[in-house]
Design a protein around this nucleic acid. Structure first.
Lengths: 348, 348
DNA sequence: GCGCCGAGCTAATACGTATTAGCATTGATG
DNA sequence: CATCAATGCTAATACGTATTAGCTCGGCGC
């Protein structure tokens, strides 16, 4: 750690091989256009010196001079710590990593992005976006203004999860929540449920809107289909409200809320799904211990990660035509919390 | 994606503020040495323009010109896919991420490193090591030759897990396997075990050697302390051998082997720990489904990740004095697979 | 002998920043 | 008034690569 021995450069290689730096660069990049010609002997000589010295081009200089880097940035909107949402995001990262490897790209995690007002910011004084050729955006809620800016700057990116337009179409790989929820509603209707309730988290994220849209679209033939907000720590009250309302099945946006609801029901001497059916709408976003196998669906997180790399590389090299927006199907989970409504119960 | 609008540079800022590019750089870097002075009004003017344009310095150019990048490389030796070892490495990454965030560093995952002869290589034609200021090395076995080369090149790095010298001391943050195993041996001896067996995986990785060393050091007062290799798929044979040998407790290097051993014992009508005690030596490196709470220890993986960032930053800025080698204590796990040897059994 | 052409290479420059030597100006001092 | 120091800034250069215009040299046609 005294004085770092100046690393080998193309100039050094050039000197050793008795050629110019330009020639070394040309050989390295296998330039065999009509424009540029290198004699086979010269090429071999240069390659031999490169092999001997173990030289590898400085990626920084390379990036500065040319255009691409084969580096994919990953920006995670939720502050990583101490939030438990890491577990939720992990599968996305696995998928991203798998395809990054396949495409020969390195991954740059923007862990240094500062948190302002409880959320991370892409754009800040020292953002390093341009180190990467493009960027994958992860997060439940993504700031619309930042999407606008990305679009304006023409910076290649892709969001994981559907996003509304932001000064132009937003490239994304999302999960088809609307269809998944609609399918579950249809199952419930088929099993005889007539009074449905949707329990939301009170956010306006696209992922929530899509779920609600699916619910509304499919619940049209129900006798009653309402929506209410889940209030933290008020599971008991919620259960009372639901029963008083004659609800037989509740669609719960947030997994943790579903767990709390089930506990509350059991505490009140009710059975699930005997007295009340509970359907969850996606994997837990925070770790919740439970033994219950909830009926619901699984978000294809790994596959979303993989495809986001695919889409991004298309956007980067410009080979992608038109807006790159993909919605992947969710896998329904049978579980055992969706039953048949008890006909003996007063249905009003 | 037509023609990317040339991004704003310091020259642009300079022109707008009516100063030179050098001044912009000086203002940006808050250079207020005795050597360099900028009038407050000038500084403000420049800062205002920067704020207006939303300019952020190009990290690539910055890195080329100066020395550091605030980027930490992460190299994972095991090929990521389709191996299940991701789960084993995840906690390390969590720790690394946590401290990278704390230190204001981004993380560069070298997912593009090619696999040669079943293992990944750091040094290859297109390695991007120099994008990062330094690098964290993860992996059960790390190639000694590559460590040599890192040392020779004076490239800052730190290994997660103890490593033997490689042309100089290797900076590492490891787990103190020797002590952990020794403690477990002592517990077994205290409970009356006299004939111990160590079941190894047949690798020569430092992590294995440390465990064996701990075993040998602590088992000196045992009546018999042997070592044997676990052969995949031969759990039944192994159990027979152990019993024939009069072994009452077996220390198993590999978690999956321990699981197989317990099954085999049960299949033979034996009880664990009644007839045979089983001690595991660290967390599973591949996912193994089991309900058994094995006695053993836990590797402080997150903490190792955190401290590896600490050590690396020390190595990078040269503030670290002497070889940076840390061994962290493992947490013993009580479990219920280590019992008291049955005195009724013929001890020979 | 001259012009031309193609092959094989190099010189020069750009990329965007950090750094350093030094210039111009001002005010103070003898 | 000459000298000097302090202040505020700029010109020039380095970092290591990619790219392109153009140079040299030999051979060939006429």
């Amino acid at each position: 750690m005294t004085t770092p021995p100046r690393r080998v450069t193309q100039r050094d290689i050039a000197r050793m091989a008795g050629v110019s730096q330009a020639t070394v660069s040309l050989v390295l990049n296998n330039r065999t256009d009509a424009e540029v010609r290198i004699a086979p002997e010269t090429r071999d000589r240069v390659l031999r010196v490169i092999a001997e010295t173990g030289y590898a081009a400085d990626p920084v200089a390379r990036r500065l001079a040319s255009r691409f880097n084969r580096i994919i940035g990953v920006f995670t909107y939720e502050p990583a710590f101490p939030s438990g949402s890491r577990d939720f995001f992990h599968p996305f990262l696995l998928g991203i990593e798998e395809y990054a490897e396949r495409f020969g790209c390195d991954l740059l995690l923007f862990t240094s992005a500062p948190v302002v007002d409880g959320r991370r910011r892409i754009f800040h004084q020292d953002n390093r976006l341009r180190l990467a050729d493009g960027c994958i955006l992860l997060g439940r809620e993504i700031d619309g203004a930042e999407l606008h800016r990305l679009n304006r700057d023409g910076y290649p990116y892709v969001a994981v999860g559907r996003r509304d337009d932001a000064g132009g179409p937003v490239p994304y790989v999302g999960a088809d929540y609307a269809s998944a929820v609609a399918q579950l509603v249809e199952v419930a209707l088929r099993r005889g449920h007539r009074r449905l309730m949707y329990l939301n988290m009170g956010t306006n994220a696209e992922s929530s809107e899509d779920r609600r849209r699916g619910f509304r679209a499919a619940a049209t033939t129900a006798e009653a289909a309402g929506e209410m907000s889940a209030l933290a720590g008020e599971a008991d009250t919620t259960v009372d409200t639901l029963l008083a309302d004659g609800t037989t099945v509740v669609f719960v946006e947030d997994f943790a809320t579903a767990v709390a609801l089930e506990s509350a029901a059991r505490r009140r001497g009710l059975t699930v799904p005997g007295d009340l059916s509970i359907v969850t709408l996606g994997d837990p976003t925070v770790p919740v211990p439970t033994d219950i196998a909830f009926t619901g669906f699984r978000i294809p997180r790994e596959e979303m990660g993989r495809q986001s790399v695919e889409v991004l590389t298309g956007v980067i090299d410009g080979s992608a035509a038109g807006p790159q927006q993909r919605l992947l199907a969710c896998e329904l989970v049978e579980g055992n919390t969706l039953g048949t409504p008890d006909p003996a119960v007063d249905r009003r």
